[in-house]
Design a protein around this nucleic acid. Structure first.
Length: 200
DNA sequence: CTCTTGATCTTCT
DNA sequence: GAAGATCAAGAGC
């Protein structure tokens, strides 16, 4: 399904805490087209997934644990977890404090600090620099050291696109529960997503 | 191009 | 003890 996120209430404006305090299902599509930098490296967010606290696929589904505690904290902070023992994956906490919802950052189209991203990743192809949640954190240099950090403050820099963009919804990647929920959001036509263009 | 498998370790059962 | 919001390399077509 394709829609435009032009109704985003804060297009072109600096992100506020209220931006993240809304439903994860409203925040997620509005992050598509936003620019995300970490210590100056990063680019345009082209793929995210929403994880709601009532969602069996969400880490927060069974309530707070030491790992997911940040998800239950205030919105706008980073939930960083270890994936498959190897990678780091980064989320943005959304919704009211205590709810336990977050948006997984899955792919960025590189626009800034590309050489640093290449050095960290060890590859040249721009589509392989930050296309995938593990690749994204490695390219930008995000680790568990930034777990619980606020996305509105350095070294993060996040800004919503000046204009609305076409957003495609599809099913999420790599999960084994709640497979049918269409909570993956990608920038329409982008070749920088973690997997080929989702079937619309 | 697609499919399969190994790496590696924290969390939860 | 198994599973997991992943990735890269290798085999096969």
């Amino acid at each position: 399904m394709i829609e435009t996120n032009s109704r985003a209430p804060r297009l072109g404006k600096r992100l506020t805490r209220e931006f993240f305090a809304r439903s994860v299902h409203r925040v997620a599509p509005e992050l598509i087209g936003a620019t995300m930098l970490f210590e100056g490296a990063g680019g345009v967010i082209v793929e995210v997934e929403a994880y709601h606290h009532t969602d069996p696929a969400a880490h927060s589904y069974n309530g707070p644990t030491p790992r997911n505690l940040v998800m239950f904290g205030p919105p706008g902070f980073a939930y960083v977890y270890r994936s498959y023992g190897i990678h780091w994956c980064a989320n943005v906490v959304c919704g009211a404090e205590g709810v336990g919802s977050a948006v997984l950052l899955r792919a960025v189209e590189p626009t800034s600090g590309i050489e640093r991203m290449r050095a960290r990743r060890g590859v040249d192809d721009a589509r392989l620099l930050a296309g995938g949640p593990g690749r994204l954190t490695q390219a930008l240099g995000i680790t568990d050291a930034h777990h619980g950090a606020e996305l509105r403050r350095p070294p993060f820099a996040l800004s919503i696109a000046e204009r609305g963009v076409e957003v495609v919804t599809s099913t999420r990647i790599g999960i084994s529960r709640a497979l049918e929920r269409p909570w993956r959001y990608t920038l329409s036509g982008s070749t920088f997503v973690s997997r080929p263009r989702p079937r619309a």
